[in-house]
Amino acid sequence: MIEVRNLSKSYGPVQAVRSISFQVNQGEVVGFLGPNGAGKSTTMKVMTGYLPPNEGTVLVDGMDIRENAIEVRQQIGYLPENTPLYSDMVTYDYLEFVAAMRGVQKDDRAERIAEMTNACGLQEVLSKRVDALSKGFRQRVGLAQAMIHNPPILILDEPTSGLDPNQIVEIRELIRTIGKKRTVVLSTHILPEVQASCDRVIIIDNGVLVADGTPEELQANLSAGEHVSITLMDNEEDVAGVLGTWDMAEVVEHGTDVNGEAYFNLNSSSDIRADLFRLAVSNGWTLTGLHRRHENLEDVFRQLTGR
């Protein structure tokens, strides 16, 4: 559906995106992850036809974003970062304006606006001016304008930034509903968002693509083996001495936590909790905590993009 090929983009001397390639298949919801300034927005701006790439191309349904600009743009709904809207317009008029600009036939506009009003919950703000809307409603109007022409592709740049937790959940649910019928590319630096709404994750760091896969795949790749943490009410050095010679697991990290208890993070190839418990008993340790840790997307993200 969307194919990004060797895309590079620089602003003057600053190279924002370096030869990124990936594909988005029909019906997928793809999350674009990366630290601020990683090149997410730039990539999206090129994909929507706003910025011309320095190198490489973007193909939508086999059509080039530059050569078939008008046709490609018709396929795409776009919500830029910070949701820019004409603040001097009434919501209804604004949606009608976008619908007209998007080529929605005059007779169909009212119906499309009604549909978007329902989908995005805009009933109470239709007759209000855009500059009087709360951030959450602005975001919904932004989503509504992106979908007004019923595009098969949606590109959303940080759709939940600046919203309160309730609004984030609402917008996320909205995106999930929308995503059932469409191809969605959304960028974010909020990790739970990706886990909540995306089929696939693409991680970009410093303009380079560093990972591409389902959230589960990415976690599996990085979290080979088992991770167990324990806390004890014993002398850290003594325990470290015993664990250091124990051949079933490897100590990754140890220290003293805020309660004054010693903690140890261990890596192993199999589940060692039972063995660890017996080891503690045989050494007479007072074990106060023993749990298995799962590497989450946050660990993946930090591992891949940490500098």
Binding site: Y50, I70, E71, I76, Y78, E81, N82, P84, M101, G103
Partner: peptide, 14 residues
């Protein structure tokens, strides 16, 4: 300033 230029120039017009 408002960023609406980005939306305007990604509409299907020249």
């Amino acid at each position: 300033r408002a960023g609406t230029l980005e939306l305007l120039l990604t509409l299907p017009i020249r």
